[in-house]
Every structure is written in C-alpha cells, then in structure tokens.
Design a binder for these strands. Sequence first.
RNA 1: GCGCCGGUCGAAUAGCGGCUAUUUCAGGAGACUGUAAAUCUCCCGCCCAUUGGGCAUCGUCGGUUCGAGUCCGACCCGGCGCA
Length: 400
Amino acid sequence: MSAITFTINKKLPKGALGRAGTLVTPHGTILTPAFATVGTKGSVKSLTPEQVAGLGAQVVLANTYHLYLQPGEDSLRKAGGLGKFMNWSGPTMTDSGGFQAFSLGAAFGKKMNKLAEVKQSHTVDERDEMTKLAKITDNGVEFKSVLDGSTHFFTPERSMEIQNAIGADILFAFDECTSPIAPHEYQKEAMDRTHKWAARSLARHKELQVGAITPQALFGIVQGGRFEDLRKESAKIIGVMDFDGFGVGGSFDKKDMHTAVGWVNKILPEGKPRHLLGIGDPQDIFEAVEEGCDLFDCVAPTRIARHGTLYSPHGVVHITGAKYRNDFSPVVDGCQCYTCKNFTKSYLGYLFRAREFLAYTLASIHNLYFIVNLLKNIRGSIIEGTFSKYKEDFFTSYKS
RNA sequence: GCGCCGGUCGAAUAGCGGCUAUUUCAGGAGACUGUAAAUCUCCCGCCCAUUGGGCAUCGUCGGUUCGAGUCCGACCCGGCGCA
C-alpha cells in the first residue's frame, strides 16, 4: 500500500516519454511536471511559506543532513513533522543526505559542480582528502558537521530513520552522488554501492512504515554518472525494486544530460513518478520533461536570485547591471509575479547594492514564480498537445 | 609672518631607500543546477595585444643615490598652534 498515487493524465505524442500527471500525497496533490521548491533547512531562503504558496509552489524539498544536525530529529518529531514545524501545509519531500557525500566530499573546497564538462581525468590532490567533510565506506558515509566539525555516521538505515522522524511525504533512498570527473571504474563502484544502499533503505523504510499514522513514500535513486552502460544497468536494478517512485541523481555531461535521462526513463516503470534531482535550468527542464521526468528541484532559482540574477523569457538578467540603474520597468513585462507587478529593475538593483534584505525576497519570488509557472505552462502544453511548439518558442527566445 | 603636522588610483587607508604601491568600500563584468552560498571570481591610471607587452604615477619643480612614494631643498595646497 503506497503512501502516494500517481496517475498519468496525458502523454506526449509519438511514443515520446514525457507526460502530464497527478501525484496525490498525504498532504496534497501535485500536478506534474512540477518544480519542488528547495527549502534545505526547513525554510525556503528569504521567503515565508505564504509567499512560497502564493507564487504557486506545490511542494517543498528539505534535506536530511541539515535537519539532522539542526534542529535534530527529536525536535522535528515532537513538532509533528517538517510541515507543521515550518508551517507548510502542502506536500513535502526530503533528500536523503546522499548529495552531501558529494558536496562535502569530492566537491569540497573545489570549484566543481555536478554538471562539469568532462574532458580528461583529473588527479586527486591528497591534501584535499584531508580537508573533506565526508568520507565514504561501503557501510555508509562519515560526515563532519558543517556547524561544529563533530563527526557523524550515516547509513542507509539511519537516513531512513531520520527521514521518518522528519516526516515528509516523499523520501529518497540513501545514495552516493558522484563527481562528474570520476572515472568509469569509480562510477561503477559507487553505483553498486548505491544499489546495495537502495535495498537497505527500502528494507528499513518498510519496517518503519508498519503501523505508521501518516504513511510516507520512498523513491529509489538511479546513478551511473555519465556512462550509458551504467545508467541503464542502474535503471534496471533500481527500477524493479519496490519503490513508490524514482529519483535520477548524480552527475551528467552538461551537453547531453537529456540523453542520459532518456536512457534511464525508458527503463524505469512508466506508472511511477520520476524526479530529476537537482536540475532546474529552464532549458534543462524542457529537455528532461520531454524525456519523461515528472518532478524537479533545484537551488538555482533561489540562489541566483539572492546573487542578483533573475530569469526572463529572453535569458537571464543581472539586475545590478549599470544599464538598469534608471530602468523603471519591471524585470519581465507582463510577468504576473508579485515582484514584477509592483517593483522596477531600478529599485531591485538599488536594493541589491544597498544590501537590503528585501532584494533577496523579491528576487526569489520572481525566480521561483518563473520556474514554477514554467512547469505549469509545460504541463498545460502537454495536455493541450502544444508542447513542441511551446518548447521551440521558448528556446528561440531564451538565450543561455 | 613664524612653527608643527599632513597631501598616495572615486573615498578611506598601508607603505618610511630596493624594483608588480597594500587593503577596505564604492564602481564594472561574470559565475552559481538533490544549498558549507545575502557567496565566490575577475577588472577597476593610459596605450597596444593572442599568451603578453609598452608607458605613466604617490601635491609641483629640482636635487642626493646604482635605485626615491619613501631622504634633502624650494614652492603650492589643507589643518592646528603662536604672533
């Protein structure tokens, strides 16, 4: 008995993988494709839950590692779960902490992201190994707290227990997110480990669900990096396990991420939802929806917003640019977000220069609205059968 | 008029004989994809250039020295004190 139900309402024509669906969770319904706003620490940075709901967001994704360190699982459990704690009444999800094996491990202290263009193998500087905050073994991941340096050990079982305490509607299996520059040999090793962890996550999750008052759903995560053989193998193995849905995780080659997503989604069972972890660039979203992804999450909209970069249909706007100093038009003409309906580019640029907190709030509202609304429009276009045209028009206008 | 102190890239600063003149802010351009992120990077005298190179510059003009923002002299500004 699953905690969620997923119904496909309409598919893209000609056997394409994309579809519009309805995902019902214990805390509400998500119309897919959809963008999950990221609230890592139980807060969508700079926004109130009312603002998040007001811009049309359907679901919030938080992070197990961060919430475990602070405020801690006991607090979350006593609060009645993440939703009550943060006053978000809608659906919630939690990432397992697996991503931190990458962000605090291989990527720590480096200029690296999960979409690095892959050219040649890099040598690992051993001094870097000493400073990492995450170390991976077959049993789990040893983390050092980013708050106080204390050491903690996550196993798949522990991640499930903590996520159970946090109480989100949809949980993710504990996985290892690898570096995009890791060689095939290591990707294979990490993938095999992730598969074992998936089975352990699932087993512990099922135990924890026995007699649960509010049921939770668990998504398994496909890994395999940028390699076709590994991606397909991972999709086969994870896809037959008894998960409620799936996450597609890890690193991609920026140029053909959608190809890799396609390999995976052709293999995953059609009837279950698929979440593309950590992807949120507008163009990437179009591609991934076309290749069969239903859910997305990404820190980019809120992060770049706080750093002064705003989305527009023509590409990105650096709002502090000198050319906007006396531009008293909205960021996007006709945009229905609270920010565009009420404020000018000139004012926003000024708020950033003056380091006023309102800058971060207004910019985040605009960017989240842009992405959430984009997914809403994509969904509409799938249902109306105009997806291809909508995508083409968007790409023509949008310059990355 | 005399004496003392001080004049460094938009601002504020460091430098007190040794070669690329420091840092902060302001200004300009970027980056950011399951958040160590209200963060980070680069530029910020002029002229060419593909890496790079050439020429300036520390109030002004002289001087000492192999070498001067740094030492000396005169002058010009500003502040304080005494007449």
